[in-house]
Design a protein around this nucleic acid. Structure first.
Length: 245
DNA sequence: GCATTAACACGTA
DNA sequence: TACGTGTTAATGC
């Protein structure tokens, strides 16, 4: 798959308003009052992107606050030159770019679709307006910022790990984040190929790592996805409440 | 040694 | 049929 550039204008021209079903799946939408919902309904756009396409690029001015309705995205630095470094995978339910939207700066990373995905976005103007009047929305954005801070710290650790099995485990743990990605259930829909792109390993190596993790009882390998059995274990932590026996 | 690419058979949506 | 998975063989750092 080769990354394609699509101008923001092209993305916009391909977009359409969101359906009621799609709106209902947006985690912060239900937190809004009637007036706020009406504005979002009018402002929010939805667009389908193909695998390899870029949603936002480093240096481009901020136009939208984006969220993933369906599919899988990857946040990374510029892979064209320098070390390709993946910061995070974005499963459905994840919203991103709030940091740069808040400061009205340009994007600091690329976001690329790993497979065909449905992406939603609200304009900077709408985002600011919501931020100025909805406490619930502020709370959502603050939680996103706070949780993502932890994500980036975890990503640094992952990139330093030499053990491939551990890298896969930690990446799965990061991808499987209930606060950041409420759209993810206990089954994470991701192919081994996609996981490979995310972690920076070959599909074959990912396959081996997944079976090692399965043997440890941390996950179960399923067709087209991974079921997480022990999230704490994946993250390398002890279970929060362990009975002494 | 370990991971990667290439190639193949097989099962599933 | 197209895609994802599991496996092996050859190759590279």
């Amino acid at each position: 798959m080769k990354p394609e550039r699509i101008p923001a204008a092209a993305l916009l021209s391909r977009s359409r308003p969101a359906s009621e079903r799609e709106l209902a799946d947006i985690p912060w939408f239900r937190l809004l009052d009637d007036e706020e919902r009406a504005r979002v309904r009018a402002d929010l756009r939805v667009v389908q992107v193909e695998a390899g396409e870029t949603i936002c690029r480093i240096g481009r001015p901020v136009t939208f606050w984006f969220g993933l309705i369906d599919g899988l995205l990857k946040m990374s630095n510029d892979s064209a030159r320098g070390l390709p470094m993946t910061f995070a995978g974005l499963p459905p339910g994840g919203w991103f770019g709030e940091g740069t939207v808040l400061k009205h700066e340009s994007y600091r990373y690329n976001v690329e679709a790993l497979r065909r995905s449905l992406v939603a976005g609200i304009t900077v103007g709408c985002f600011d307006w919501l931020l100025g009047r909805s406490i619930a929305f502020n709370r959502f954005v603050m939680d996103q910022l706070n949780e993502r801070l932890g994500q980036f710290i975890a990503a640094r650790e992952i990139d330093r790990l030499s053990d491939a099995d551990l890298r896969v485990a930690r990446s799965l743990g990061a991808l499987f984040h209930p606060v950041l990605y409420p759209g993810v259930g206990t089954l994470l829909h991701i192919t081994q190929q996609e996981l490979g792109y995310l972690v920076g390993l070959s599909r074959q190596r990912v396959n081996a790592a997944l079976h090692a993790l399965q043997a440890q009882g941390l996950i179960r390998v399923e067709y087209g996805g991974v079921r997480v059995l022990d999230l704490d274990g994946l993250r390398g932590q002890r279970p929060a409440a362990m009975a002494t026996r």
